[in-house]
Nucleic acid binder design. Structure first.
Lengths: 92, 92
DNA sequence: CTTATATTTAGATGATAAGCTAAATATTAA
DNA sequence: TTAATATTTAGCTTATCATCTAAATATAAG
């Protein structure tokens, strides 16, 4: 869970997730959306991957990245736990 | 939005929010839940406050902190935007 | 007014993190 | 096998961040 929030704390990484929401993209295609060097984007992708927020799969020379929505949902569960029941003890 | 995610990226600050979910607490009461110096906790509270995730109000010698759920909901809205509609263009 | 309590501010330090360039790896194609 | 393309790894630099101690501020009580 900590890895998840750490990964989400960077605006470049959040934007990457928004790009991947629309469609799977290669590392190079992702990098083309930013004014940041490809090695730096690769580093961000590695952090997202370690947090399991994205998955990658080789396709020829390219690495195709896709979003992992189940981990996103876990993080959202944390929010729901906070928002859902202010005040009272849990489950009562 | 960036301040929000930055604030949420630290485990101590997330735990503070969980404490405040159950009930409002003074800075000292919050600090007593951690093995961290009071100035450090005060620093964390300042970051949460700047992100408007918490509010504070003086009560005698104490500062009483409370959670601001509306900002939490904004952050959750970001998640919903990502999870809600994978694949297709937005609103279609 | 002086002392005690609660909290924050200041200043310093060590760790993390984001960015870069250059070099290494992996795959495809000639 | 050699050259071209795509991506990652290595190594470095700079900036940000979490933490600490010591000092400052604010309120309450004697």
């Amino acid at each position: 869970m900590n890895d998840t929030f750490k990964a989400l704390s960077d605006p470049t990484r959040r934007k990457i997730l928004q790009l991947l929401k629309d469609k799977d993209l290669s590392a190079g295609e992702i990098a083309s959306h930013f004014d940041i060097s490809k090695p730096s984007i690769s580093h961000h992708l590695g952090i997202l991957k370690q947090a399991r927020l994205v998955q990658d799969e080789r396709q020829g020379q390219s690495m195709i990245y896709s979003i992992n929505l189940s981990v996103m949902q876990e993080a959202m569960g944390w929010f729901l736990g906070l928002i859902g029941a202010k005040g009272g003890p849990p489950d009562e």
